[in-house]
Design a protein around this nucleic acid. Sequence first.
RNA 1: GGGCCCGUAGUUCAGCGGCUAGAACGUCUCCCUUACAAGGAGAAGGUCACCGGUUCAAGUCCGGUCGGGCCCACCA
Length: 809
Amino acid sequence: MDLPKRYDPAEAEPKWQKYWEENEVFSFDREDSQREVYSVDTPPPTVSGKMHLGHAFSYSQQDFMVRFHRMLGKNVFYPFGTDNNGVATERLIEKMKKVKAKKMGRSEFVKLCLETVKTELIPQYTSDMKRLGLSCDFSLFYDTIDEHSQKISQQSFIDLYKSGREYRKDAPTMWCPTCETGISQVECEDKELDSHFNDIVFKLIEDDGSETDVLIATTRPELLPACVAIFYHPDDTRYQKYNGKKAKVPLFNHEVVILPDKRADPEKGTGIVMCCTFGDQTDMEWQKAHDLPIKLAISADGKMTALAGKYEGMKISDARKAMIADMKETGLLVSQKPIKHAVNVHERCGTEVEFLKAKQWFIKYLDLKEEMIAWGKSLNWYPDHMRVRYDHWVNGLQWDWMISRQRYFGVPFPVWYCKECDEVIVADEKDLPVDPIKDKAPVDACPKCGSSEFVAEEDVMDTWATSSLTPQIAAGLVDHKGVYPMSLRPQAHDIITFWLFNTVVKSRLHNEVNPWKDVAISGHAQDPHGKKMSKSKGNVVEPQKMIAKYSSDALRFWAAGSKLGDDLPFQEKDLVTGAKFTTKLWNASKFCFMHLEDFDSSTVPKKLEIVDRWILSKLSRIIKDSTASFERYEYSKTKLDVEGFFWHDFCDDYLEIVKDRLYNPDRRGSDARLSGQYGLYHSLNAVLKMIAPIMPHISEEVYHLYYASQEEKKSIHISSWPSLDMPDEEAEKIGQVVIEAVEHARRAKSEKNVSLKTPIVQMFVKAKITPEEFDLVVDEIKAATKAEVIEFEQLGEESEASFGCEIEL
RNA sequence: GGGCCCGUAGUUCAGCGGCUAGAACGUCUCCCUUACAAGGAGAAGGUCACCGGUUCAAGUCCGGUCGGGCCCACCA
């Protein structure tokens, strides 16, 4: 066989990727209703330009698992989706195209988004994923903003609305007064700002009508007009006597009640705190817990409302200054301490985030906490400890699921409101997907009041409202009963509380089943020092460059180096190791095929040599262990086992010993050669197959050089997983003596600084096997050590040493 | 502040109750042996973070301390 001297991944990898696609190697068989289906809820990456290393890491890991199941003969449903929905995409497009959504106007901006997503983002992203060697069926594609997804998302909304799970009510929303837009958590960042703790005087009204001063510390005096209550910690003896009494708010003089609440921190400020509607998160919790009135001090454009009386119309910062000045004058401000504190600001403009009242849509689910815990329990978590994060999240839930966003680019709510009575008009299901801004409501008159005027809902749904439906979206691409519920949800651990949790909720609410059987949670790729990679730190590694420099197989080999769920620091040296592994595979295969040219794979030799039985016995154990590891999604264990077996047992030991028989049938006998060929054939084949899920390209390349025609398969990835079962205790015992003798010989030569081919004049071997057994392998030892004469002595069972060796060079 | 994970060789990790604690990379020495110098052979290198406990026996189980990482929350 004439083989190229070197393997060139830069040429081979794209070649096979093209081959797989053209030959539909990873196609889901829609017609097959017999074969077990293995369906995967592939995470649709949020398209942010290019694939980053974290994606390469976790998508590689899921691909290992999927490829394994495919080789078990299952009908694999492995779609590919992208998530282009919501804030992240809006911001990316604004940056890419140098536009502002607000200035551009809604319809034009949405159009630009859709176009950019389709013609630039998705193609770039998909090609990166293909280059990584992901074995998705790319013909099963969805994007969370495409019509198919919109339809399913809107259908979900309508179903939940009709079943009474959705409601609309006023709720605080995060708002940037400068940009005049609703914003989400991901758009905020912490910023250290200088501020002041102001101790101000509230007048407590005693039972007899007299007033007592109570000092309250605040950083936000401008919210005084929205003050609705005062809280102290229930254990705080200083303030217990005020329970239920009222106090007058400085400057505004409206009366608010004083109540105990354990969220008040006795250590902070004066230990007693004012609660203003929409001051911060805790304020909102208090508002909800104590059913306090909602008061708005700040309007959408960041100015004071009418509630602020004479301060109305002032900007927040001016109002703060004015009120402080006024309180100083009237003696209501006792002291001012400068502090530094972290505040939530809008990352784009640095403005402090405010909370604003707006009508929002919610999915009601707080009543389902117990069920949610049970749903989580009935999932198979890999690794198991990730389940805890889900449980803690559910236990900590305090709000229903808010699904509306004051944004442009997202799935529209299929909803209109009656202009007269605010009645909700829901789209007709047959019209989905709809855009209420463009489309007409499905009725001519309001069923409640008869009015014929409607207003469209302009909010869009939050990303998670749609991406929590990926199992249904993906399953909807084919008409096959076996696809949903799915077999596997692979994803990273950071979004257990978002994507995973929300998907469980939706699947349960709609279909009363868990969306999948197994969840496999991967960790994060980190920089070489174990830190998170981020653009601002400048420690980002581009997977595209690594693939170009080494290979996709090498990058995947690195990704297989950590246990599922563990974070893994990126080290370029690990890619060198991966690249070396492909070279070793190539070279060893070249050697094997050279000696297998005249081998008929259907042949089973009448008698197998001890050393061949030895390697096949070891191999059997590796296959058994690796299969079990893969079934538990422990691909890193498989990788480690196969790597060690291949490099050491197979290459370093077995090939060196069997070589002589393969080259010299005249001296060693043709039966002995045939036996060696048998060992070679099955060992290498199994190694290739076991490493194929991790290194799909080199294994495919090598497989096609020889095995593909023997097994009549068009790809190693749809060949059968190895199943050899030839455990052989006797051979392992005798084989071990051979290995030890060879190792002693190597050490002796190394210590003498001579070449390994230097002959050994005489060798004495002592071992706990019989002379007859030793005779079976004496020629192997001679061949591998160049020993001319070997003397053997059997060690008795009582002997302390199990092996002894003396060598005369 | 809450949660989860992790502290084993210079580095990245295996080992998770029982022989002398392993691998890869790196280092050092030697060897171009007809698959492979991106190779082969050998060697050096570890009080398994610290303290206490359970056990005949502990990197391995339990408790605590310290350190690292990530996620979530909070910041009157």
